[in-house]
Amino acid sequence: MSHFRIADDAHQPKTFAFTPEFQEKANKEIAKYPAGRQQSAVMALLDLAQRQHGWVTRAAVAHIADLLGMAEIRVWEVVSFYTMYRTTPGGRINVHVCTTTPCWLRGSDAVTAACKSKLGIGFGEATEDGQFALHEVECLGACVNAPILQIDDDYYEDVDGPKTEAILDAFMRGETPTPGPQVDRQTSAPVGGATTLHSVGGDD
């Protein structure tokens, strides 16, 4: 968990506007809510802004507040409440390691160590070339596949130290490894295949 902080003015771009592609998505989100309730789209719009720019800038908050007809401070309240909104410039690829109890019991310390040594940075930092940023996060809600490594939108599950390094290596080469369990299991089904109901459904 990191303390909420807004980037210095030196890092803040002066303006923000959605690109036509993102504007279209934003319009779709706003249209989901009845007239007079557009403010409900604030979280979605913040997410779009973050996807477009990489992080949520002051200008983006002002723009969204304006777009939805709400006070800027109300938007900041939302931004500051959720750790998933990034308010400082980070890396292009965001690596999140879950260190909450289930993941920790299943070896998240090794995952953390692998990330730190591979990327050469600590939590809350970004690599010098701005390619990677490393974040420590609370429970990602996938404890059955602990430990979890979240890279951008994808979960890499059942990882350990060497697997983490392999995944990061692949990203460094510009590839995107297949997300999901990194061991022999289907989603959150038992490791090594079904353990019960062998006779049902023609399991062979």
């Binding site: 303390h3 909420f4 807004i6 006070a71 401070i73 109300r74 900041w76 309240e77 500051s80 409440f81």
Partner: peptide, 24 residues
Amino acid sequence: VDEVAGVPTIGALGRSGDMEITTL
């Protein structure tokens, strides 16, 4: 400031133990 004054400039930023009242 939100309801009576109608100038919403004060907000509660952050959450739980890190919550802070601010006007930025």
